[in-house]
Design a protein around this nucleic acid. Structure first.
Lengths: 213, 213
DNA sequence: TCGGCAATGAGGGAAAAACCCGATTTAAGC
DNA sequence: GCTTAAATCGGGTTTTTCCCTCATTGCCGA
């Protein structure tokens, strides 16, 4: 990683937010925005081994190819790029999963610009930037082995439909399976996600951008 | 409204987004950011007849005092301030309500910076800036009298709780009323909001920032 | 080949949600 | 005083959701 003229890529689905951040970063010195993308899919198309940034600023809450998925893809394909997460919420699961994945920084979208600059600087120097809430979640979960929640395609498909006003019967028809099987998926997710009602499914689906508001 | 050095206030709950937008606006010429606020409540505290901007950029999706409410308050107390809405989604109801309220512009957060600059310019010149989707919603609803959905405090209180995993019985206890009354609120909202299930309530509550994800 | 595991499906029953029928009280407006 | 509207509460019914136990199929790896 060079010590000046750090190359940065910006991945967020809101153009206005991206433009604002570009302006903000340009007001700092030593950084160049080399690439913008609205989602992970677009990012993956634009990246190549010969054209890649030092740091990627990655939004977690995106529709098409979500941030978590994008981060995993990046670790697998471009392990030398430093990732800084920009997220709306401090979701414990997401924080822990991203830290485990090796992201270098984690910022909330209501961070102060100075904190943002600090994060860029630290990460550019090869250090980590974890705010208080990240270390707090790390401490809280130090003992209990937190295995990341993995959902298969069928469960995701069900979850998307559970985030609508369809009844389980209607969901079953939609998925071309029996209502009993749908019951099974539901109970399975109740267990996995530690929730106990349809509302919990809806909230989870929304938090993970499985339903478009 | 002066033709140069337009005074702008920025209301959005994400500091990083605000900072970015400040940088972006500073890169234009003729504008000054005189005030930032994280929500309508903070804005109302900071404004005074002697200290008020020409234009307010207002986010609709805020926790504390939501954008719609803030916009109404502004029309009532500072009718001469021009409002430009910055929203995540093109929700037909919100668009129509805001237009009816007399906002001067309506932008999505994935607008291009050039579009954003155009909007500022037009509104500063005393004109309107309505993108295509706004006029489309206007046309679509030209005939049918769209009366804005008004919810009272009790309904809002109920709606917040309906956005959690509580059962209606538990919501009743929380609100210190009988389960029947809660049934009544529910059915009333089903009618008002044109939905037919608990899931619909949850989705509506989230869209209107009544529940914190 | 066998055992396990994932995806699928079934029966029955208790709880919650959704949909009817209503009612009383209270406060505001004319 | 009368009307209206809003907030509150009640009984009963049907549908949906939730919680058990269990069976079948097929595939994959030891």
């Amino acid at each position: 990683m060079p010590t000046q003229n750090i190359q940065i890529a910006l991945v967020d689905d809101h153009r206005l937010f991206r433009s604002g951040l570009v302006s903000l970063i340009n007001s700092f010195s030593g950084y160049t925005i080399m690439l913008e993308a609205a989602n992970g899919e677009e990012l993956s198309r634009k990246l190549s081994p010969k054209f890649k940034p030092d740091i990627i600023l990655l939004d977690l809450n995106m529709p098409v190819m979500a941030g978590t998925q994008t981060a995993q893809w990046l670790r697998a394909n471009y392990p030398d790029i430093c990732i800084i997460i920009l997220s709306m919420f401090e979701d414990a699961d997401k924080v822990l999963n991203m830290v485990k994945l090796g992201v270098k920084g984690y910022l909330l979208k209501d961070a102060e610009p100075h904190e943002f600059e600090q994060a860029l600087k630290k990460v550019a120097q090869g250090e980590l930037y974890y705010p208080e809430f990240v270390t707090r979640h790390l401490v809280n979960n130090f003992n209990r082995g937190v295995d990341p929640i993995k959902l298969n395609n069928r469960e995701l498909e069900f979850l998307k439909l559970a985030g609508t006003e369809l009844t389980y019967k209607e969901i079953a028809d939609q998925m071309c399976i029996s209502a009993r099987t749908v019951d099974g998926y539901r109970d399975q997710l109740f267990e996995k996600l530690q929730i106990k009602s349809r509302v919990g499914l809806v909230l989870y689906a929304i938090k993970n951008n499985l339903v478009q508001l």
